[in-house]
Design a protein around this nucleic acid. Structure first.
Length: 646
RNA sequence: GCCACAGUAGCUCAGUGGUAGAGCACUCGAUUCGUAAUCGAGCGGUCGUCGGUUCAAUCCCGACCUGUGGCUCCA
């Protein structure tokens, strides 16, 4: 039976099964063969030397197709392994896939790799690429494969997974190096031209902390030099924006070893923190009920909520010195305390939905290796809300919360992607409850008409959720907000409302966070704006700069007026004018109000905008105040960045 | 938690087996300045902590603490 291939122009080809795509492409045109990286058959990417087994839509993938990059990078991983094996023949090979921004390869070695090793490997890779070694594909059976990889226990283990399946086992060889591999690959090693080894890291074999630690080498590769350069530049840009670096430079927060994973907010940082928190409060004023609840609870509550069983590892337990037992814990979540509030009264169906919100501090005992700046901490606060509602209100409520969340991100110039996460392997509650919860949330999500992605198995242990992944100004994604549907808590806490029928019913609970944790959200904002905050967020909004000391009293008066108008202004009289302008620029103060003799006499200020250099504007103090107040009140995203200047 | 790397003045960093330096910051003095660092002087460190090797340790070794990059986007 010949295979029928349909080309993009609608024409068809009949080829014998086992024909190589290379030959099909060559028959279309030799120039196309030169440009070809791989092909797709019926939507599946395969390389030019894997025999065709089925027909269907046939397209040629060139450098222009983003999918070709994965092929190149996967081949890059093999070339890395080839180079490592030449220099360290004893290295056992693990896995080496393409990943989002490049590729990696895992090795088992006695001596970990040093930075010098990396340089040597990279040089060797350039040699391998220069040798233009073809990637030769072979199909083998179990017995042959075992023989090929007899010295590579990790490969043998992978091989064993295929035992008893009808999976086609294939190997790829470039030069003297053979790897167990599904492909696809570029035709030969010379395709790898623009690449860089980035760093090493430890990685458990198969991600299992009980297995041995392998040495992973991370790298990246591109078809074009300018793309590689752009990528490396993005890495540099991310470093420049790193909230830990910016946070120090702008004096926003610090950490002390005496409280690992818990931030100390400086006066400037606290101002920023409060500005964000106040914004949330204002937005929640109308439809939410803010409460404050204790930080410390008895074990009994956590047993009831299920945390004691499922979440204890992450909780800070408090030792009772009398009984020598851990019978209390700092709260890692707010839900139980909100449930208590709910149960304190009888509720009518007419009251629902009820929305409790809290800004309380939470503690989670993250493992030491997981801590990282403000993005992964042990103490943090959430803009945490629990909604108690009737099942028939789910769709409206999800839409309401979703609009609330998306509007919030919008205020910071952040856009969000929606992800729907379903039941995880470790969970509480019956499958029937999960069926209902997932169906209800999905229906609500689809009723909003917004596009979303699926994350199977990624739900919370008590329910499915919608996650909001936000993209920042340099294209990185962060998971922030969440809407989680919970049918379990109402059971566990015996939550009830009285229905129209005068009978008792179970409400549903929705867990909602918008910022995720404030700590992490502020880290994201710091990086998103590169420290150049819009006026309403800026810790210091205006710096008043008299040109000489004789104008100090006028400048002081202007500063006082600005402050009286609710503007965070500071007067700077030290050193030279140039020096003070530089200080204000470095601290990314949005506005500088310069006052010389002319301004003092005319009752004006020369307004210098952060990042815009000498493009100043002389306006009256009154209109300057008006302008800044207006921008603060509207929470405008001005003055625009300036975040790209060094 | 595990692997690798790092820890020198408040910050950024240089340096050496014979108990340490720079720039900025800070203090003082001079300068009073029209848009990104005025000049000079001074202060400042048990070289993360504890132990070991050594005649001698900030440097070599070990442990600990803290931080940084990671810890399957399955061959």
């Amino acid at each position: 039976m010949p295979l029928l291939l349909t080309l993009p122009d609608g024409s068809t080809r009949e080829v014998a099964p086992g024909t190589l795509p290379r030959d099909v492409v060559a028959s279309i045109g030799p120039r196309l063969l030169q440009a070809a990286i791989a092909v797709t058959v019926d939507g599946e990417v395969q390389d030019l030397q894997t025999p065709l087994r089925k027909g269907g839509a046939f397209t040629v993938i060139t450098e222009k197709d983003p999918r070709s990059l994965d092929v190149l990078r996967h081949s890059g991983a093999h070339i890395l392994a080839t180079a490592v094996r030449r220099l360290r023949p004893e290295a056992k090979i693990g896995f080496g896939p393409a990943i989002d921004d490049g590729f990696y390869y895992d090795f088992e070695v006695d001596k970990p790799f040093t930075p010098e090793d990396l340089e040597a490997f990279e040089a060797e890779m350039r040699k391998v690429a220069g040798e233009k070694l073809p990637f030769v594909r072979a199909e083998v059976n179990q017995i042959e494969a075992k023989a090929v990889f007899s010295d590579d226990p990790l490969k043998l283990e992978r091989l064993a997974d295929f035992e008893g399946t009808d999976e086609v086992i294939s190997t790829y060889t470039d030069g003297g190096f053979t790897d167990l591999c599904r492909g696809p690959h570029v035709p030969d090693t010379s395709y790898l031209k623009h690449f860089k080894l980035l760093h090493t890291a430890g990685a458990y074999w198969r991600g299992d902390e009980k297995r041995q630690m392998l040495q992973r080498i991370y790298a990246t590769a591109f078809f074009k030099k300018d793309e590689l350069d752009a990528h490396l530049h993005r890495i540099e840009e991310a470093k420049r924006r790193d909230h830990r670096v910016v946070g120090r430079a702008l004096d926003l927060f610090q950490f002390f070893p005496v409280s690992p994973g818990a931030a100390f907010w400086t006066p400037r940082g606290t101002t920023l923190y409060n500005a964000v928190e106040q914004f949330v409060r204002e937005r929640q004023q109308e439809h939410f009920l803010e409460v404050k609840t204790p930080l410390l609870y008895t074990k009994k509550l956590w047993e009831q909520s299920g945390h004691w069983g499922k979440y204890k590892e992450n909780m800070f337990l408090v030792l009772n010195s009398e009984t020598n037992e851990h019978d209390m814990s700092l709260k890692p979540m707010n839900c139980p305390s909100h449930h208590l509030f709910y149960t304190a009264h009888k509720h009518s169906y007419r009251e629902l939905p009820i929305r409790y919100v809290t800004f309380d501090v939470l503690h989670r005992n993250e493992v030491s290796g997981a801590l990282s700046g403000l993005t992964r901490v042990r103490q943090f606060a959430q803009d945490d809300c629990h909604v108690y509602l009737r099942e028939d209100q789910i769709a409206d409520e999800v839409k309401f919360l979703m609009d609330f969340i998306l509007g919030y991100y919008d205020a910071f110039g952040l856009s969000a992607t929606l992800r729907f996460a379903t039941r995880p392997p470790v969970r509480i509650g019956s499958d029937e409850l999960w069926d209902r919860a997932e169906a209800a949330l999905k229906a609500a999500l689809e009723a909003t008409g917004r596009p979303y992605e699926l994350k199977p198995g990624d739900g919370a242990f008590y329910g499915p959720k919608i996650d909001f992944d936000v993209t920042d100004s340099i294209g990185r994604q962060w998971q922030l907000g969440t809407i989680q549907l919970d049918y379990n808590a109402p059971e566990r806490f015996d939550l009830e409302y009285v229905g129209e029928d005068n009978a008792s019913h179970r409400p549903v609970v929705i867990h909602r966070a918008v910022s995720g944790s404030f700590e992490r959200f502020l880290a994201i904002l710091i990086e998103h704006f590169a420290g150049a905050f819009p006026v309403w967020l800026a810790p210091e909004q205006v710096r008043v700069l008299p040109i000489s000391d004789e104008l100090a009293s006028v400048a002081q008066e202007v500063t006082t007026r600005l402050r009286a108008a609710g503007i965070r202004a500071q007067l700077a009289t030290d050193e030279s004018l140039n020096y003070r302008i530089r200080q204000a620029e470095v601290l990314k103060v949005p506005y500088m109000a310069v006052i010389g003799r002319r301004e003092a006499e005319a009752g004006t200020v020369a307004v210098r905008v952060r990042g815009e250099g000498k493009k100043q504007e002389v306006i009256s103090v009154d209109s300057f105040i008006e302008r800044v107040r207006g921008e603060i009140a509207s929470r405008a995203l001005t003055p625009a960045s300036g975040g790209t200047s060094a």
